[in-house]
Design a protein around this nucleic acid. Structure first.
Lengths: 124, 124
DNA sequence: CACCGTTATCTCCGGTCGGACATAACGACG
DNA sequence: CGTCGTTATGTCCGACCGGAGATAACGGTG
C-alpha cells in the first residue's frame, strides 16, 4: 500500500435550474419517486424523514415549475385521499433520472481524477 | 405562434460531493477562478458580492476537501498579502470546468425536452 | 519603526429554513 | 351522519447562514 484515501468516491449531483427561478434536484426527484411508489405525499415525505409541511411545499413548487402540475392530490374519498404523478410528472422524473445517468457516465474520468486528489501521498 | 414560453432555457448545475461531506459547486469554482484572476481572497469575494468572511470560509472548506490545499494565502509582505491557487487548486478548477462542459454537452437533449414542458399549450 | 493592504478571527444580528404541532376541510363508505 | 386518513394551512420556535463591522496579526517597504 502506497497511499490511503477517504472512503467513497466523489459523486456528482445535478440541479436543474428552471426559468422561473425554481429548480429540481435530487431531493424533489426522490420525493416524486416516493409519491409514485406510495400514492401519498405524507408517506413519501415520511420515507425521507421530512415533515409533511416540507413535502407539501416541495410539491407546491414542483407544480408551479412547469406548465402543468406534476402531482395530482385529492382529499377524502375512497382511499381517504392520496396523490399520484401526472403524465407530466412521470415524464419529468424520467428525464431527471436520465440526466443523472448521463452525467454519471460522462464524468467517470474526472471523478476518478478528483478521487486521486484525496489520496494521502505515501511517505518518501 | 402556437405557444408561449418563459424566457430562458433550463440550466444544469453541478455539485460534486466529496467523501468528507463537503462539496464543490458553481460558487466555490467561481471563487477559485476569482482568486486566480485577482490574486486576493477579498477581491475575489468582492467580485461575487460576497463578504470576506464567507469567501474565507469557502476557502477554508476547499483547503480541507483535498489532501493538499487549493489556495495558498499570505499576510503582509511585498504585495501587502494575497492569495493564489496551488497546482492542486488549478487542477481541481480545471477538472470542475471540464465536468461542467461535459454535462452541458451530455444533457442538451433533456434540457430541450424539459423546456418544452414549460410551454403553455395553445388555445384549442 | 510607522505604514499599508491583506489575511485571519471575533461578535452581533436579521432573514430564512425546516421541524413540531394544531386545526380544518374533504368525501366516500359503512 | 359519524368515521377515517389524507390533504391543506396556519403558528411557534430553534438552528443555521451569511452580512456588517471591529480588531489584530503579518511582513515587506519607505
Amino acid at each position: 500500500m502506497t497511499s490511503s484515501r477517504k472512503p467513497g468516491l466523489p459523486q456528482a449531483k445535478l440541479r436543474v435550474m428552471m426559468p422561473g427561478g425554481d429548480w429540481i434536484g435530487p431531493g424533489k426527484a426522490d420525493l416524486l419517486e416516493g409519491i409514485e411508489a406510495t400514492g401519498s405525499i405524507s408517506a413519501a415525505g415520511k420515507r425521507m424523514r421530512m415533515s409533511y409541511k416540507r413535502a407539501w411545499g416541495l410539491v407546491e413548487t414542483l407544480n408551479r415549475m412547469f406548465s402543468e402540475p406534476l402531482v395530482s392530490a385529492s382529499r377524502g374519498g375512497a382511499g381517504h385521499g392520496g396523490a399520484e404523478l401526472t403524465a407530466t410528472g412521470r415524464e419529468v422524473l424520467a428525464l431527471y433520472r436520465q440526466m443523472q445517468h448521463r452525467t454519471e457516465n460522462a464524468l467517470s474520468q474526472e471523478i476518478a481524477a478528483l478521487s486521486r486528489l484525496t489520496d494521502i501521498p505515501a511517505e518518501k
